[in-house]
Write a protein that binds this DNA or RNA. Structure first.
Lengths: 126, 126
DNA sequence: AATACACTTGAACAACTATTCATATATTTA
DNA sequence: TAAATATATGAATAGTTGTTCAAGTGTATT
């Protein structure tokens, strides 16, 4: 469904008008939030997360990555495409070989924030 | 498929052994990366992103949120469940009304990082 | 030019996910 | 206790996504 605008409304009677109005007014641009969700969606797959982790270590060719993740080269290639479209990785060609590397300084930051959340969760007991 | 371990290997001949070995060795725990992806998956839906945005403004009941997002109460309730399981929101009951609020200091940080990436993308022209 | 090889890509399929609809639960009020 | 209301939940469904398989590019080597 993602991104469709719904028409139905809640049928409650005791809505907190002031809060609703304020929140509605301060909501960021719908498109921006959509793009944000799209970005996180890219991070929301363990194969892609692992690829990013591998590339954080060093620039690598497709076969290298496939070998590290123990997956087919085709599967990796498909995912690299997604990562590239999201501008998280870039590539360069050297003869037959295509080398991929991280294309964003924020990748590590976003990772670390996510890890911080997970760690805090664990500490709070789960 | 998510989380399954593959058996096939890449059939390339010119793997960069040193890089592969180093990357393999330094890869974080598989389970940790899986959890990380699971977390980002929660952020990877615009409805949930919008809910978090709304709650960043103020504590709200389910109907309030439904009203702000212009969606059915049921849909919101289902998503709040996901957010709660991920420990991103918490709730308290006051009579018939259940109030939800953010349950994590990192939510805003993660948001901001994501936005930083998007902005940089735009600046680089796209 | 022909072969080999690293990589890409399209189609197909299975697994997953978000919303809807109907119904259930919990709490207040009459 | 019965009715009203805010929320939750289960099943169904349509849409999405990741991997596989087969075939296609592009580059180097002979």
């Amino acid at each position: 469904m993602e991104g469709k605008i719904k028409v139905e409304k809640c049928d409650c009677t005791i809505i907190h008008e002031d809060v609703v109005e304020r929140a509605t007014k301060n909501m960021p641009n719908e498109e921006l939030l959509y793009d944000l969700a799209e970005l996180f969606k890219v991070f929301g797959d363990s194969t892609r997360v692992r690829i990013l982790c591998a590339l954080d270590e060093a620039e690598m060719c497709v076969c290298d990555i496939a070998s590290v993740l123990n997956m087919t080269q085709s599967a990796i290639s498909h995912q690299l495409r997604v990562l590239k479209q999201a501008r998280l990785v870039k590539n360069r060609r050297d003869g037959k070989v295509v080398y991929y590397s991280l294309d964003d300084e924020h990748v590590r930051t976003i990772f670390d924030d996510g890890l911080a959340h997970i760690k805090e969760q664990e500490e709070r007991g789960n």
